[in-house]
Amino acid sequence: MGLFIAKRLLRLVATVFAVTLLTFLMTSLLPGDPAVAVLGAEGVQNEELLLQVREDLGLDEPLPVRYVSWLGDALTGDLGESYINSGQSVSDTIGDRFPVTAQLAIMAILIAIVLALPLGVLGAYHQSKWPDTASSAVVQVALSVPNFITGIFLIWLFAVQLEWLPASNWNRMSNGLGANLKTAILPATALATTQMAIFSRLVRSDMIATLQENFILAAKAKGLSNKFVLLRHALRPSSLSLMTIVGINFGALLGGTVVIETLFAIPGLGFRLINAISQRDIMVIQGITVFVAVVYVLINTLVDLFYVAIDPRIRRS
């Protein structure tokens, strides 16, 4: 077990290192000069100033030197400063934005689970009958409609037509939980629809398999109610792979909220990343990309370790 964990951690370090290297190289390969982005087309008229800005940003150093210097700082938690919003530390930016994105991702996962479980159970219990077909149809729709289209639809319905919820922007928790949830519910729901479809399919197929097991037949033979059998005996063993995919998808959602955050103008990591890309704010691009990648890899590792902990067959192999 110890060896397994050590191996996984070693792999994690190697992956994170590769991610930092690739991110650094790719952002450095982006066409254009960050110094020009800082100065603007008009500011660049002064060549002396252009050279000064390049020097200030360390762009006059060779790429390997810049990478080693950046990596050294990053290991101490210093991801540098924004080129564009001068004086703003990238670590602080991530610290401000991560809670917003994490809240969206958590809410999306919760909404998805709450909707997916009944749909999946219903489909499995009434396999090949009309409730199964109906729930499959809902899942099909949720899978085939991109979440930004769902987002646009939700804005149109709940903000423009019904005027129940705001169309955009974000109320921080400090403004009150109610106000916060009012701004979070639509984007979280938009993110949740695809997740819900994936989870529901998983629950349905796992539960169909579970319902064939002998212990289910035994429970039914004892005269237990269908509801009891489904919820107490079948649901738990059918949820293991759901828990795994929830973990993995949570990590993916952290990096996948870019479109929804931009659509709803939510100040999370994704929105900042998009702005940084359009402004050639390379330090911010690198910092956010690496952070999201590290979190994703960490979550995957934790899921692996969780698997090992609960499944002795993996431990033995």
């Binding site: 903000a159 423009v160 955009s168």
Partner: peptide, 19 residues
């Protein structure tokens, strides 16, 4: 002032009374 980069959302925000 609220930055709302998506054109449709920005208009919808005004139509819905958000802005």
């Amino acid at each position: 002032f609220r930055p709302i980069p998506d054109e449709g959302t920005r208009l919808d925000a005004t139509l819905s009374g958000t802005t």
